[in-house]
Nucleic acid binder design. Structure first.
Lengths: 222, 222
DNA sequence: TGTACATCAGTGAACGCGCGTTCACTGATGTAC
DNA sequence: TGTACATCAGTGAACGCGCGTTCACTGATGTAC
């Protein structure tokens, strides 16, 4: 008997499963409602209405909207990290490495549209707590990209700080590209091609400079 | 008599002057209140309360908050253009052109703090009408910078499109830098030095690539 | 397996509040002669 | 300059509305034996 109850507690019961579904529905409803508005102008009642539960049920899942916002930051950065992992794993054609990288970005912007939109929208704009959380995650994200870059021979003698500088530049360009793709009007899908071409050129330009770089604050011994 | 009335109408009467002052006070109050919140979460009543007029008096100046937002876009981009003009007019030391450019940016971020914050915050985040207006102004701003760049010998054989691509990259890095400066905590002012150094390096890196660039879509005849 | 009790996701009524907007108004400023 | 009328920035009361949050509740699911 004791065993059975322990197992029931360990594996998810019907109640737990259902709660988890509502939780996910709240996150998705919030992202979905951000089509035409920012997170800060989203109301608790709107979100619960979209999910189909009563406003007070919200408090079974989050203390307030701020906490929901933080959950969205976590979920959205999971998508970004997955993108980075794709870029690492997929075979990179030496010839078209820039094109291929930008295409991975474009693909994730489409499949994880709501997550990208959330980060782009709330990165500078929204409520303080969410903005801080995004800023923190973004710093980690830049570091992860820097770690990837440093493996390439061109960066082998670079200082950590300078690699981060390049990574930050690329991440900024990447987000501007993501925003541009998100903004392509439905009636002009061909606009995306131009955006991708521009992003590819920007990436190519930045990495073209790398072999010629000489830091103004060279590492000790240089 | 007729003359006098015409002159009175032409030169600003006391009433006109006072109305203009209230108008400016509304714009400034809105920018000021955006310290801890975005424009979309700003209420008409908050703004009039800050100015010290009754809510209904707002309608003597703007049809609604959206119109006030558009006025803020115009005013803010005037500040940005003034910055570009500074960069054109001031003598550029050949040796430290990157450092100097970034310092002009930093100076304007401080003197026009509220305008920069407004653009950075509302560029991706806020209400649609304001976002569209910023996007439009930003495209013009990129073109203006491209026109400035194209005067430099390194860009002489570049296509217009490619110069715009570089200008857009620089403007994005510039805004990321502006945001970072705006975000420097009051108790750590020395953080700004690092931000400026990074921005300078990014600018140097991008322009280092320029002489080595070969467009993948070369102009006819190349 | 069956029963008695505990848990807890979701309900529904109620609250006080700040909001945008309407309307008729006031009184200082401007205009006409 | 003086007077009579027009303009219009700002006033103040009032409205209906959606909001976040409280509270006591219900009833399906879970637990103990």
């Amino acid at each position: 008997v004791n065993n059975r109850s322990r197992n029931a507690a360990r594996s998810a019961g019907a109640r737990q499963v259902h709660k988890q579904q509502t939780y996910q529905a709240l996150l998705h409803a919030a992202l979905h409602l951000m089509e035409d508005q920012s997170f800060s102008s989203l109301s608790l009642r709107e979100v619960t209405r979209e999910v189909g539960i009563v406003p007070t049920a919200f408090y079974r899942h989050f203390r307030d909207m701020e906490q929901l916002g933080l959950a969205l930051v976590d979920e959205s950065f999971d998508s970004l990290r997955e993108m980075l992992r794709s870029a690492r794993i997929e075979p990179m054609p030496d010839k078209h490495v820039y094109r291929h990288s930008v295409e991975i970005l474009a693909r994730y912007v489409h499949t994880r549209r709501l997550h990208f939109r959330f980060i782009v929208r709330e990165r500078y704009g929204g409520i303080s707590v969410v903005r801080q959380a995004i800023r923190r995650e973004l710093r980690l994200f830049v570091s992860e990209l820097a770690t990837d870059l440093i493996r390439f021979p061109d960066f082998s003698r670079w200082s950590t700080e300078d690699v981060r500088m390049v990574a930050a530049l690329i991440v900024n360009a990447m987000f501007a590209t993501a925003e541009a793709i998100l903004d392509v009007p439905a009636e002009r899908p061909e606009a995306e091609t131009e955006i991708i071409q521009t992003a590819e050129k920007q990436l190519r330009l930045v990495l073209l400079a790398v072999p010629h770089w000489r830091s103004s604050t060279p590492p000790i011994g240089a």
